[in-house]
Simulated scan of single mutants.
Amino acid sequence: MNNLPPVTTHEWSAESDAAHIAAIRADAARYSRGGLVHLVLEVVAYPVDEAEAGTTNRVLVTLHADGSISVEDNGRGTNVFFDDNGKPVVKPIMATRDLRFFDKPEAEQLPDGLPRTGMSVVAALSTWLTHENRRLDGAWLRRYNHGLPDSELTEIEAGPHTGTVVHFQPDPALFGDQPLTKEELVPLLAAFTTDATIEVRTV
């Protein structure tokens, strides 16, 4: 792709990094040690970043009956680049390393006291993950299987609002079948320093 956006948090040159995802899964005990709560904190940290920039003010965490978890925000959506042919390319935050945090000794700590590693760890440790991305210039959906894309980027109806929904099913082989509870999650979400409202619901 020509005229790629500047590298800030992720490399735009590839939509996925199979070696990176494989390395996470090969050392799953290390990256899953914070349990399900840590996975949620990793995802919520991104809209918290947006709130600091003034581009979102609401985050909704939903604990689904099937054990999956979704995190929705009303921000500007994940950055999208249009190549020379007009094809949309979403910033590859799901399947490539976050250059600020992954395996960085100086990475910020999340409210559970563990270092932030990035969204790719959540994707790699999940059986499946979907990323719904709504921006002013369009809306798209992609599904990931064990951290790697298993579908093409699909254009969806834009709707009246921008923002993202990250919906993931933690791998039961790593986390067991015991679902995350609201009582476990709420105190740690409340520890984020943010002006955004973070709500938790069960469905």
Rank of each mutant, 00 (worst) to 15 (best):
A26Q: 10
V90F: 03
G75Y: 08
V80E: 05
F81S: 11
R30W: 09
A53G: 02
V61K: 05
T62R: 15
S32K: 05
A65R: 15
N74R: 08
S68F: 11
T56C: 15
V61I: 08
R30S: 13
F82C: 02
R25G: 00
R58Y: 12
N79Q: 15
N74H: 09
V90G: 05
A29I: 07
L63I: 07
R30E: 13
T62C: 14
F81R: 08
G77E: 10
A28N: 05
L41K: 02
H38Y: 11
T55I: 04
L41H: 04
I24H: 02
L39M: 09
D84M: 13
G34A: 07
V89D: 06
V90K: 13
L36F: 02
V43P: 00
V71P: 06
I24F: 08
H38S: 02
A28S: 09
F82T: 04
V40Y: 05
V37Q: 09
T62Q: 13
A53M: 05
A29S: 13
K87V: 14
D73N: 14
A51P: 00
V71I: 08
E72H: 15
V89I: 12
V48T: 01
R25P: 02
E50T: 04
R25Y: 06
Y31W: 15
V80L: 09
A53P: 00
D66R: 14
V44K: 00
D73P: 12
H64K: 13
S68I: 08
I24R: 00
A65E: 14
Y46W: 03
E72A: 15
T56R: 08
N79F: 14
H64T: 02
A53I: 00
N74I: 05
L39A: 03
A22D: 12
S68N: 05
A53E: 04
V44F: 03
H38M: 09
L36Y: 03
D84G: 12
H38V: 01
A53K: 08
A29Y: 12
T56D: 00
D66L: 08
L63K: 07
I69F: 01
D83Q: 03
A65W: 06
V40K: 01
S68G: 11
P88L: 08
A28W: 09
A53T: 00
E52Y: 04
V37L: 13
S68W: 07
E50L: 10
L60R: 14
V48P: 03
L60C: 10
A53Q: 09
A45S: 13
F82D: 04
K87N: 13
G75N: 07
D84C: 14
V59A: 10
G67V: 02
A53R: 10
G77H: 09
P88M: 10
R30T: 14
D27F: 08
E72G: 06
D73A: 15
P47K: 03
R30M: 06
A26N: 14
V44I: 07
Y31I: 06
D49V: 02
R33G: 00
D49C: 06
A65C: 06
S32L: 06
G86D: 06
H38F: 07
